[in-house]
Structure formats: structure tokens, C-alpha cells
């Protein structure tokens, strides 16, 4: 049960283009896994397959639940995709209705829905937004409303496909911290497909894909230090890691340092 996502012998092709050929991947419960790789590696396709957008051969299990028409409802209780463009997802006049809608779909009684919406709003500190139209919010606020809807859905696995791209850098960090806290508190598993380095560094596990195959996987620093392989694949290395490696080459620094202040103090001692 420690492995929440199990993909076995996955076969999938877009028309003649074979994307996955006997692909296997397992993901640990409660982990934050970043799937990285060049454009066209199959990253987004993998998430779409998890969301049941295409039919495939092989097995995909989420929390031991298989995606087949008969058990579809049970499967989708366990998994949730945070959208890149929240406007595509909104269907209600107010934030309150937007969060409540998810609970209504679960056929919860009105009193429970109301209590739950308020509890979620409190947890995410968005009580002041409840009566506002979701369309009028800032990019960051919209994404937090999506996270509120996600909490109402109460999934085991949350998928993000370049989800935080539209958000200011200043708000992005707050949302990443919020997601990380929620993950730890509720033992949610996060799987993110991104080129965003801040998001990659937040993960505790990285899977590098190329042409539908796993090229590298492991702890972030270990994977991100494989400069040669990542460069060949065109995967961006976070600035501080790349800088550390360069400084190490010049004998100005001994180890990888992610904190800029600490790094500056360490060089020229």
C-alpha cells in the first residue's frame, strides 16, 4: 500500500507515434514527484492517461483502484488534476458555490457542505473571497480556489501539469509552500509535470523521462547534479545547482549550495 500509483507494462500510441512501450512506474504515497524531460518526452501524456483521457494497454492502478468504466467513479474520487488555466474549471458565480459544487456532487447534506466550505476557506485563509466571483480574482487567488475545490474533492493523488505557470513569482512560492504543507498534513501524493525549477526543487523525487522511457530517477540533488545527461536532454538545471557546479569547477566552492546568501558567504573565505 506504500506505492499509491502503479503503472505496469503501459502501451500507448498517438496514431502511429508510440509514446509508451512497456512502461513501468511506481510512485510512493505521500511523495512529491516531479516528472521532467524534454518536450515530447511523454510527460503530459502520462498525466492524461492517469486522468483517463485516452484508452491504453497495460495497467494503471491508483490506490489499488483500476480505471475501468465499471469502477470509474471510485477511481476519480482518488485523483484530481489542478488546472493550468483555472478559468476553464470555474462554473459558479461565487467562490463559495465553486467549492460547494464539489461537495454537492458527492451528495453531502447542505449543512455539512456549508461547514466543510467554511473549514476549507479557513484552512486556506480565503474566507474573504467566498462571496466574490472566481473570475475576478488574481491568478494566485484563482489557483488557491482550485486548491480549495481539490480539498473538497479530498483526493489521494493530485496531478499538476504546468499548473503554476500563470502565477506571479512572488505568489508562486506561497502556493508551493501551501501545497507542501497540505501534502504533509493529509499525506497527499503530488505528481507534477513542469519545467518550472522552483517546483522541481520542492519535490522529493524526480523522474526524468525521454521518449517514453525513464532515464534517471531519484532524490532531487542527486538527479539534478547529473549535468551531462540533463544537458543532453535539454532539461534545465536550477540556477543555484548549475552555479554550484560551475563554482566547484573553478575550485571556488566545495559542495552544492541552494541558498544564495550562504553561497556568497562560502566563496572567498
Amino acid at each position: 500500500m506504500n506505492e499509491i500509483v502503479k503503472i505496469k507494462n503501459l502501451l500507448f500510441a498517438y496514431q502511429k507515434n508510440q509514446v509508451f512501450d512497456k512502461f513501468n512506474l511506481t510512485i510512493k504515497r505521500g511523495s512529491w514527484t516531479a516528472i521532467v524531460g524534454p518536450n515530447g518526452a511523454g510527460k503530459s501524456t502520462l498525466l492524461k492517461l492517469l486522468m483517463g483521457e485516452f484508452s491504453y494497454d497495460g495497467t494503471i492502478l491508483v490506490d489499488e483502484q483500476i480505471l475501468v468504466p465499471k469502477t470509474q467513479q471510485e477511481y476519480f474520487k482518488k485523483i484530481y488534476l489542478l488546472p493550468e488555466n483555472p478559468d476553464d474549471k470555474f462554473i459558479s458565480e461565487t467562490v463559495k458555490e465553486e467549492i460547494a459544487f464539489v461537495l454537492e456532487n458527492k451528495r453531502k447534506p447542505p449543512k455539512e457542505i456549508n461547514e466543510k466550505v467554511i473549514a476549507i476557506a479557513k484552512e486556506l485563509k480565503i474566507e474573504h473571497l467566498l462571496d466574490k466571483s472566481p473570475y475576478q480574482l488574481s491568478g494566485g487567488e484563482k489557483q488557491i480556489v482550485c486548491i480549495a475545490a481539490m480539498l473538497a474533492h479530498d483526493p489521494e493523488v493530485v496531478l499538476m501539469d504546468e499548473t503554476l505557470n500563470r502565477i506571479d513569482f512572488s505568489q508562486k512560492e506561497n502556493i508551493l509552500i501551501l501545497l507542501d504543507n497540505l501534502r504533509k498534513k493529509r499525506n497527499i501524493t503530488i505528481i507534477t509535470v513542469t519545467h518550472n525549477l522552483e517546483e522541481i526543487v520542492k519535490s522529493d523525487h524526480i523522474v526524468v523521462l525521454d521518449y517514453g522511457k525513464i532515464v534517471l530517477r531519484g532524490e532531487p540533488y542527486k538527479v539534478l547534479s547529473e549535468e551531462k545527461i540533463l544537458n543532453q536532454l535539454g532539461v534545465e538545471i536550477p540556477f543555484m545547482i548549475s552555479l554550484s557546479l560551475k563554482l566547484r569547477y573553478y575550485n571556488l566552492l566545495d559542495e552544492i549550495e541552494l541558498d544564495m546568501d550562504k553561497m556568497v558567504r562560502k566563496i572567498w573565505v
Partner: peptide, 13 residues
């Protein structure tokens, strides 16, 4: 408009 969103480093270059 936001041309680098979703692009890998090679594509950005």
C-alpha cells in the same frame, strides 16, 4: 504572450 510556458531549455534556447 508568455512564450516560454511549458518549454524545455532547448526549446527556450
Amino acid at each position: 504572450d508568455e512564450p516560454t510556458v511549458g518549454l524545455d531549455r532547448n526549446s527556450k534556447n
